[in-house]
Simulated assay, not measured.
Amino acid sequence: MATEMLRLFDPTLDQQTAPPEESLNLIPIYRNPKIQGGILPGCYYYLHVAKPGLDVPLATQKEQPDYGKEYLTGSPGGKPDYFRIHINQYNNVETLTCLTKQAFPCENFICLYGLHERFLNNMVSRFNEKLIPDFYEFFRETWCLALYHDRFSDFRDEVRELLVTSPGVGMDSIEDKVREVVDEDVPMNDAQKKQLLEIYASSGSKRAVETRLLSFLSYNYYHLPMYAKPGMV
């Protein structure tokens, strides 16, 4: 369609009887979540953030062996208010559901989609230790404000680029080393985790990531003054 529309705006283009081959058989990749929300009868504020795709009944999803786990606080109409988080098999946030009579920053909560639970201040371990009685309060604390910053996704892309790029000619990237150590069909054991951490620290990648993080906080310090940085102590 883009090829056909372009002819209307640029008549100098050569007329083609068929679209170019590279425009055929393209499968779109959807990275942004499906978002549903609004104010329901009874003055309930509702938000549902989910993975893009066909709607599948929740009961059917839970029957899948790779469903993951869900964590929730509160109950509909109860106290604290209802907040459900579904973590997939890779420990990334795949679904968020909020239902409360109090207004909440839905734009901020949408930013949590797709993040690893370690980004969320070790949410899973804290929840299991009963340190999170209310997700609404937990995600309003100052530690998570960087996650809501509009440049945080760019920072994540920069870190990923560091880990997938070879540090030099003939040298493996961290991603390559992970693929060598980890078998995709077998869960990672403690020895493999220890080995990867040693590689991560000795290769200089750990220092590079820390430097990028400090640069991110320093550059955006006007909006993120609650984080410590070198020279403050």
Score class of each variant (00 low, 15 high):
residue 72 L to N: 07
residue 100 T to A: 15
residue 182 V to R: 03
residue 82 Y to K: 02
residue 228 A to L: 04
residue 83 F to G: 10
residue 177 K to P: 00
residue 130 K to C: 10
residue 180 E to F: 07
residue 102 Q to F: 05
residue 98 C to A: 15
residue 108 N to K: 15
residue 147 L to P: 07
residue 207 R to E: 14
residue 130 K to S: 11
residue 126 R to T: 02
residue 230 P to T: 05
residue 77 G to I: 11
residue 70 E to P: 00
residue 57 P to C: 03
residue 170 G to R: 08
residue 145 L to N: 13
residue 63 E to S: 11
residue 32 N to V: 02
residue 76 P to H: 03
residue 86 H to S: 11
residue 9 F to D: 09
residue 192 Q to W: 08
residue 188 M to P: 06
residue 196 L to F: 06
residue 56 V to L: 08
residue 66 D to E: 08
residue 65 P to K: 03
residue 222 Y to H: 01
residue 124 V to H: 01
residue 144 C to N: 07
residue 65 P to M: 11
residue 54 L to H: 06
residue 193 K to N: 09
residue 102 Q to A: 00
residue 125 S to T: 15
residue 142 T to Y: 04
residue 147 L to D: 08
residue 35 I to T: 00
residue 81 D to S: 13
residue 17 T to N: 08
residue 98 C to D: 06
residue 155 F to Y: 15
residue 164 V to C: 05
residue 228 A to D: 13
residue 42 G to A: 04
residue 98 C to Q: 09
residue 45 Y to F: 14
residue 177 K to Q: 15
residue 83 F to C: 12
residue 211 T to K: 13
residue 133 P to K: 02
residue 43 C to K: 07
residue 1 M to T: 14
residue 56 V to A: 00
residue 192 Q to L: 00
residue 61 Q to M: 14
residue 85 I to S: 06
residue 189 N to K: 03
residue 203 S to W: 01
residue 93 V to Q: 10
residue 146 A to H: 14
residue 90 Y to R: 10
residue 218 S to R: 04
residue 197 L to G: 00
residue 187 P to N: 10
residue 1 M to P: 12
residue 196 L to E: 02
residue 74 G to P: 08
residue 3 T to L: 06
residue 81 D to I: 01
residue 150 D to F: 06
residue 38 G to K: 00
